[in-house]
């Protein structure tokens, strides 16, 4: 009985970050118009994947990242594989730099997120430019990335609180 409860809790722990990523994708696909459409929707799954890959990679395995990316591709109508590629790349970069970022001040981690987000944006821009056959304008994506970067400290705080609670209770 106990082992069964343990496995349910284990599953819930893995499902939790995954569901947050999925919720982030849904927010990207919903007709949310922040400030009357003046502010682009932050790419929340990027922050989810960055945070959990850094602090708790076992709770957000590559398969979760892959599914979140594919779901985003399907719901936003982009080419299949684009966001899953980008997110898995992000996870790889974060995992390889973990030993540096763990335990550092939030500002340092934020700087890391900025680098990762800019890298992700450039990859998306390059792939979509390849698809279009010419270099696409960058400003739209820049706004969205800036919104995501500005929003990260708030999201990071939220994720920290959620993680503490989950770790305490489970």
């Amino acid at each position: 009985m106990n082992t069964r409860a343990d496995s349910v809790i284990g599953l819930a722990k893995v499902l939790f970050p995954f569901l947050m990523g999925v919720a982030g994708v849904l927010l990207l696909a919903l007709p949310v118009r922040l400030f009357g459409g003046a502010m682009p929707m932050p790419i929340i799954p990027l922050a989810v994947i960055f945070f959990w890959s850094l602090y708790d990679p076992l709770k957000l395995p590559a398969s979760s990242v892959f599914v979140i990316g594919l779901f985003q591709d399907a719901l936003t109508g982009g080419p299949f594989g684009l966001w899953s590629c980008v997110y898995l790349m992000v996870q790889y970069v974060v995992l390889s730099q973990r030993s540096y970022f763990l335990g550092r001040e939030p500002q340092v981690v934020w700087l890391g997120f900025i680098l990762v987000a800019v890298g992700a944006a450039i990859s998306v821009w390059l792939v979509m430019s390849l698809l279009a056959g010419y270099l696409l304008p960058l400003w739209g994506l820049s706004y969205q990335i800036i919104a995501t970067i500005c929003f990260y400290p708030v999201m990071g705080q939220g994720f920290r609180k959620i993680r503490r609670r989950v770790m305490q209770e489970m």
């Binding site: 927010l27 990207l28 696909a29 949310v32 929707m41 936003t76 982009g78 998306v124 739209g140």
Partner: peptide
Amino acid sequence: VIGDSNDVFARSMV
């Protein structure tokens, strides 16, 4: 309209 892709390069609505 029940969905509006907030993706910069994929402009579509559901």
